[in-house]
């Protein structure tokens, strides 16, 4: 069974930065990524708040550069989902994926968070046929058409603004009457002639057939009024849930399912670190995730020095 010094679970900003630090410290490092390196930023059109890029930078390109940088120093990337994680009696960790088992002296979990689903009829059936969690992937298919964007946070507005380059109208459906999104995004959305705000409203059902989404059934939460809005797509940005299932039973989780860590990203299990959006009280910003990844890698480095001094 292949053994690494540091195994990193998740190849987003936190994981790729942890990999860069770990590999650059000459540790045998592996990153497991179940989907796309970059995580959430990989599908972000323009990242405007990562320092050093005054013009903004394409999220996918930035992630690819982070990956190249980690690989340049020797980090390995395996595109496979880690199914189980446990700690053996000798203190080393065992990870299993579809392809097999791996061992690691230290583990950094940077599994991030996934967008929540609405949980309404039609959502699963119409995924890929107009129901989407990725505007940069799918917006271009709705040129000149009316679409709905559900949510009121940064993601909803950011992605909604992207969709408005293609769609003739973007209906923002929000269950409250105020937005959580940052002021700069709110200003842009209000100034956008293609944006329409539908307040205090939830989606009850997504209608459609083989040909795709044909509309959403809406309900006003104050008046209980119900109506149908014809749209050809529904982009859903209603918050995220941490991918902490690997950690369940292993480390303490907070009420939202995020791992509890100290300021050095250490969990209650020696040698197991958690960084980025999957940890408690994360800022959920790329630059913060990267910072977390560096902190975790340095703490892991110190753990390895102390626990395996002969190997150093």
């Amino acid at each position: 069974m292949k053994e690494y010094d540091i195994a990193i679970v998740g190849g987003g900003g936190a994981g790729l930065t942890a990999a860069l630090y770990a590999a650059r410290a000459r540790r045998q490092t592996v990153v497991f990524e179940r989907k796309i390196t970059g995580g959430q930023i990989a599908t972000t059109d323009i990242v405007e708040n990562f320092p050093g890029f005054p013009e903004g930078v394409n999220g996918f390109d930035l992630a690819q550069r982070m990956l190249q940088q980690a690989e340049k120093f020797g980090a390995e990337t395996l595109y496979d989902e880690v199914r189980t994680l446990c700690r053996d009696d000798d203190g080393r960790f065992r990870l299993t994926t579809e392809a097999g088992g791996y061992r690691a002296k230290a583990v950094v979990v940077t599994a991030g968070a996934d967008y929540n689903r609405l949980g309404v009829p039609g959502e699963t059936e119409l995924t890929g046929r107009g129901v989407s969690w990725c505007a940069t992937c799918d917006a271009a298919f709705f040129k000149g058409q009316e679409v709905a964007v559900v949510g009121g946070g940064d993601s909803a507005l950011d992605e909604g603004l992207f969709v408005s380059r293609y769609a003739s109208r973007v209906h923002l459906i929000h269950r409250r009457d105020t937005l959580r999104a940052s002021e700069i995004l709110q200003e842009r959305a209000r100034a956008n002639p293609r944006f329409t705000f539908t307040w205090d409203t939830v989606v009850e059902r997504i209608a459609g057939d083989e040909a795709g989404v044909s509309g959403v059934e809406l309900r006003n939460v104050r008046t209980d009024a119900r109506w149908r809005l014809p749209v050809s797509a529904v982009f859903i940005f209603i918050g995220q849930s941490p991918n902490s299932h690997l950690l369940r039973g292993l480390v303490d989780l907070d009420g939202g399912g995020h791992a509890r860590v100290d300021l050095r990203m250490r969990t209650s299990v020696p040698g197991l670190f958690v960084a980025g959006d999957v940890r408690t009280q994360a800022a959920r910003q790329l630059v913060a995730a990267c910072g977390d990844g560096a902190t975790a890698a340095l703490a892991a480095e110190q753990y390895l020095d102390e626990t395996y001094p002969e190997a150093g």
Binding site: T127, G128, R129, G130, S132, C134, C137, D138, A140, F141, F142, E210, A211, G212, V213, A233
Partner: peptide, 19 residues
Amino acid sequence: NTDENPQVPSRFGIRSIPT
């Protein structure tokens, strides 16, 4: 390439890529 070839993607109802 779905930008250059609209007919086949629309015939199979492709609204998301990669598919």
